[in-house]
Design a protein around this nucleic acid. Structure first.
Lengths: 223, 223, 223, 223
DNA sequence: AATGAATGAGATTTCATTCAT
DNA sequence: TATGAATGAAATCTCATTCAT
């Protein structure tokens, strides 16, 4: 079978200048395609964005699309993974910076709304909208992505309670809170940015949302 | 031109027994089709569920589907509206029973998880999964449905603060909390029922989620 | 098989008042349907005019359409026959009035343009446009209609030459002239009334067309 | 978005042999499809000739049809344009050869009947029969085609009167005669070739028709 | 006689994917 | 590596016609 030529998988023990240039070009092309797909998936929807139009937009031929990605689904999956990687980097660094204090939760919230959502609405649309209901494989990836995000938040919450020597209401509490927080983020972003354009009010929105979360966490902490 | 023959739109000032029986049959057929669609959309996905299979499943011909619904999109939209109507009835009655006290918020949460989600997983899947990213018209309906649900919760929250003579942190707080609560419900249900089958733990889940919400609300209330 | 209940075919030796009234209603309905079909076929085209819309427009049910006419094709055929009957009456009477002199040819031309085309543009559209390319049966009827019209004109031309003791260029001349004249009429009407609306210039058009015809006839007459 | 790959639209500044061969193949395929469509539309009718059968007949897949033509209507329109182009070339060259004398009118008539109609009955059927009443777009094309043909004849008539220093009866005469001549050609061809097979008598028919036309023209010329 | 809900064959069209060059 | 013409399965939708009431 044809294996995916992701730039990462290309061996790095390259020799000639030509080989180096070729690899650079390959990486560049790979990124062009992902970018074109990101734009079209977000703006016109996954189904409407045909492979031909993605190819046109990335200035390559349809055949080239299939050289870099197994199929359309695979293209979406790689795009999803890339976006989720970027998001986790962004949020994770905030938890770490704040040494897993309550402040980390706060900062992560603000960063999500003000750095991620406002700056990359296309990524937002793909993560929360265009990747839904496409296929079992995509759904499986979505699930893994969310599971990782949830695990990140859950870990932060557990460390938080450890730091403060508190116990949550039930053994599930940390997980439930993590899922809840993700759900809040998701729909707040969807509602105020995808459905309505209220980016002007984002500061207030993120403040209130974070406050809501902190209250919820407190209430589930024994005392 | 050709009007949708929804049973509701049939005039009720009918006379003969024949006409009455016909109307009953019409309503019955209409419901059969919606039920068949609900099952197939939820179990196999909107795209996979072809009109032919829906027709087979409802034991009618394809033409009959198009007699009752303008097209596949229209079928989904009517199904969505029906489901959202049922959900709002369910939640609304809890708010009213509790006379818009904090208890209403609590009870609505429990009812959502324990009455709606556990009993009607198919409706859940359609509302939160299968109706996403289908078309502009469907998205518009989804939006209106969520707007109504949000308005319901927001109203309950406003009445609650009035009853307790409290002020929320910002003018947007009630709206943001309502959106947040919906988001929590949505993802909690999705995570624990659609992705994982943890219906056994639903009691704990609903308890913790409700507790989280109450904490959040308190934190956004002055005092 | 179900025979067509054309009003003509209903026996006239009726008895009771009720029977008389029924027959009147039947004829009325039959005409209503033909009128509705005429309008819709002409205005929206044969294919676009669905049986349901014709029924709506005639204020009867679809089933009733099939009581009076075997099928859609049959409806068109009856309409065509009716229209061609009216047209032949109109033209024929002019030939007779002028006692098959050259003047009859002239008068028939003016009557066609000024009485038929201007007054009944819908009939014009059905005869020359909407009945084309529908089915073998309809095409066969069109052919018979044109054959009759051609025979009428041809007969007038033959009588004309007899009256004036002239011989036409060939044995086919009378037939060819008749076909030519019909073709001229058809396309002149189509061009100036269906494609362009130049009904204001119809007097000039009919004058010139008739003059052209008379010149053509003279040229094919020996001397 | 997707542009029609008509062979004409392919740039000619191609380089490699491969590209040249590909273009030749493309043109060949394009013509194959048009030929297959011409045959089927003429022999079985536009509606009966399904895209699948046209594809079979052209020995390509259905998808290929849609690669070369936007849809079925587009296929018909291109076919119509091709046929009308050929016909105008044929007639126009006769006018020119005869230097717009009366002889040109004569020769054009003979060429139409004896070269075009007899040799290409399928093209005849499409131009005068199968393209009628299909859709607004097709009707619009038909109209443009006839308008051009009429303009050609009209120009020849105007030049003729200029050459002979004659004036026609009215300002509309040239146009009316042009429309009349086209109408005669159309129905003569339809009557004697599509409805009846009297190709044997075509010589007499074309003689008489041309004589009729010349007489008509003379009669509308002052003196 | 009249109704109108139900039928289902049949047509068009889309588009992800392949593969020879 | 890259190209893009070709494929064809699969889906939606229409509408003339029927027939039980």
């Amino acid at each position: 079978m044809k294996k995916n030529k992701t730039p990462e998988s290309a061996e790095n023990n390259s020799i000639s200048k030509t080989a180096l240039r070729r690899q650079r070009e390959r990486e560049h092309r790979y990124e062009s395609i992902l970018s074109a797909a990101e734009l079209l998936f977000a703006r016109e929807g996954y189904l409407q964005a045909s492979m031909e139009r993605i190819a046109d937009s990335a200035e390559v031929s349809v055949g080239t699309l299939y050289f870099y990605f197994k199929n359309k689904e695979d293209l979406l999956v790689h795009l999803l993974d890339k976006i989720s990687f970027e998001l986790r980097e962004l949020l994770g660094s905030e938890f770490i910076k704040a040494d897993f204090s309550l402040d980390g939760i706060k900062r992560a919230g603000h960063v999500f709304f003000e750095k991620f959502c406002l700056k990359y609405p296309d990524k937002l649309a793909i993560l929360f909208k265009e990747s839904m209901g496409r296929s079992n494989l995509v759904e499986e990836h979505r699930r893994q992505i969310f599971d990782k995000l949830i695990a990140d938040v859950q870990e932060a919450l557990v460390r938080l309670s450890d730091n403060r020597s508190l116990n949550y209401q039930s053994v599930l509490s940390a997980e439930i809170m993590a899922v809840s927080i993700l759900g809040m983020y998701e729909r707040i972003a969807y509602h105020f940015l995808i459905w309505q354009d209220r980016s002007k009010e984002m500061k207030t929105i993120s403040n209130d949302t974070v406050a809501f979360i902190l209250g919820g966490i407190n209430n589930l902490s024994g005392q």
